[in-house]
């Protein structure tokens, strides 16, 4: 809805991206014991910029390749501090810390959204 697009602003879009970043980190944690797996992370500021500009390649056929601004386009490989000899670049303690932080950031965004929503509710109720 157009109304809420501008009301919730950046936080609504950020929430989705934060969830996608958590998904990416959960992939790293799941593959901590997979040989030759390369850990990935999201370049969050670039992804958010992509989502805000919301520029799509126009497609005229269902089989055309579309670009999704944001999460899929802005994935970066992480550089391991200590390379493992089976080619895996996941460092589990670092990924855990990242996941914890990402969860906290998600909650922060959620808190902002809750604030926005309760303000809207107050206006609608007129108390």
């Amino acid at each position: 809805m157009k109304l809420f697009d501008s009301t919730l602003g950046i936080h609504g879009k950020a929430l989705g991206l934060r969830a996608q970043r958590m998904e990416l980190i959960s992939k790293n944690i799941a593959n901590a014991d997979t040989p030759n797996f390369k850990a990935k992370d999201l370049d969050f500021s670039a992804a958010l910029k992509g989502v805000q500009q919301d520029t799509h390649i126009r497609t005229t056929n269902a089989r055309h390749i579309t670009d999704i601004p944001g999460a899929s386009a802005n994935q970066i490989f992480t550089k391991p501090l200590n390379a493992s000899d089976n080619g895996n670049t996941v460092e589990i303690s670092i990924e855990q810390a990242k996941y914890g932080r990402a969860a906290a950031e998600y909650q922060a965004t959620l808190r902002f959204l809750e604030g926005d929503i309760s303000s809207i509710r107050k206006v609608l109720r007129g108390d």
């Binding site: 909650q107 959620l110 809750e114 929503i117």
Partner: peptide, 11 residues
Amino acid sequence: LMMRTIDITKA
């Protein structure tokens, strides 16, 4: 986090 997101309607 999923449960908290569902609770956003109660904000």
